[in-house]
Design a protein around this nucleic acid. Structure first.
Lengths: 202, 202
DNA sequence: AGAAATTCTTATCTTAAGTTAACGTTTTGA
DNA sequence: TCAAAACGTTAACTTAAGATAAGAATTTCT
């Protein structure tokens, strides 16, 4: 766990701004509770079967969430730069995580342990803003999840792919196709067929 | 908007307990910001195309979330007694909702308007606990959504139905089958076939 | 540089879901 | 109470996705 450079701290502060703005005194206390961790490609941030007792903020790089089902690796989500990363259900409930999270490339991730998070939630100086931060972050992801859920109920795989073409630039550009296929809830073979179908139709 | 009876207030207080415990003074201020609304069957709680500027807590009854796609009505979710109800994305973002929410039976729902919610978030007496309340509620739904999302990515419709058989008693008993089918991401015809398949296999 | 692994496409075959329509049953509402 | 609407199942047909395997192209790693 390394110390953070001032540039890294500035990036974090900026990334948090939409959710919470600390004054100087609060910020000093806050940054004492966080650490920076460097991940090699494929290094695990969280592991199925183990409790995920930390949340992260991706400063550089990207991560992939996946399960193992019947021996097969199924990608369910990604986090990119300036996004949060955690096996959040496990973090919140203390139950073992169901999924793995691995770095897709060499990555720098700011890490907050559950213990330190709780210290801050119980520290009168930070409690209010941390509750607010937690609320807004959770709400942010709630909105993402709701939209994604609704796409599984109301759209076909092809429609989901077309939507991703419109507003999923980052995923499309940086991810191998079979990860994208899983993310859409289909097999890589099926995605390949959908892509062909779309080409022919045009 | 009616006043609440003391029994109704007690139910609400109990329902909020896992998330927030008010002292008497706080409670008195809190209950001034809320109202009770009675819904007839099929009466709308929220409407696609309109901003949903309120959240509810179902005291009695149940509601159904649905979209209209190509003229067809597609059920995406339910809320039952002692659960929260809102077109939450719209409530949070102020954008028009994409879905409808209707009462499935005569229902009593405690309603908090966005305006009053903001009053409370800005009232020093309640702010901290309301932030906490908001955080925990959002986290609660986050966990539900994450599990449901993961089921769309890792499971077949049949597996999703079998899981619902195990731990979805309330939905199965109270909902018509075609609502359940939508909820699982399939058509009613397909659910009927899955049910038959399961019977024959046994 | 070269072997191994990964990625994507394609083909074949199987399986299951979507669509539409029909029919009997149940529920609803005027 | 009675007609209309809603509901669940079934059937026939169409369409698309899953499984498996093969092959070419690319990337990775030593």
């Amino acid at each position: 766990m390394d110390a953070l450079t001032s540039a890294q701290l500035a990036a974090l502060r900026k990334g948090m701004e939409p959710y919470v703005v600390f004054n100087e005194a609060e910020w000093i206390v806050f940054i004492q509770q966080i650490g920076l961790q460097t991940f090699k490609k494929k290094q695990l941030f969280a592991e199925a079967g183990k409790v995920c007792s930390h949340v992260g903020f991706v400063l550089k790089g990207s991560v992939r969430y996946y399960h193992i089902k019947d021996g097969a690796d199924i990608t369910s989500y990604f986090s990119f730069e300036n996004e949060y990363v955690s096996s959040y259900t496990s973090f919140l409930t203390g139950e073992p995580a169901l999924n793995y999270i691995e770095a897709l490339e060499p990555s720098q991730i700011i890490v907050i342990s559950k213990k330190n998070m709780e210290l801050m939630l119980n520290n009168p100086m930070l409690a209010y803003k941390m509750e607010r931060f937690g609320r807004l972050i959770a709400e942010h992801y709630l909105i993402c999840y709701e939209e994604r859920l609704s796409s599984f109920i109301t759209q076909t795989p092809e429609e989901r792919y077309l939507k991703l073409l419109q507003n999923g630039r980052e995923i499309l550009q940086r991810m191998p196709q079979h990860y994208i296929a899983n993310f859409l809830g289909i097999t890589p073979v099926s995605l390949s067929r959908i892509r062909k179908r779309i080409l022919v139709e045009k």
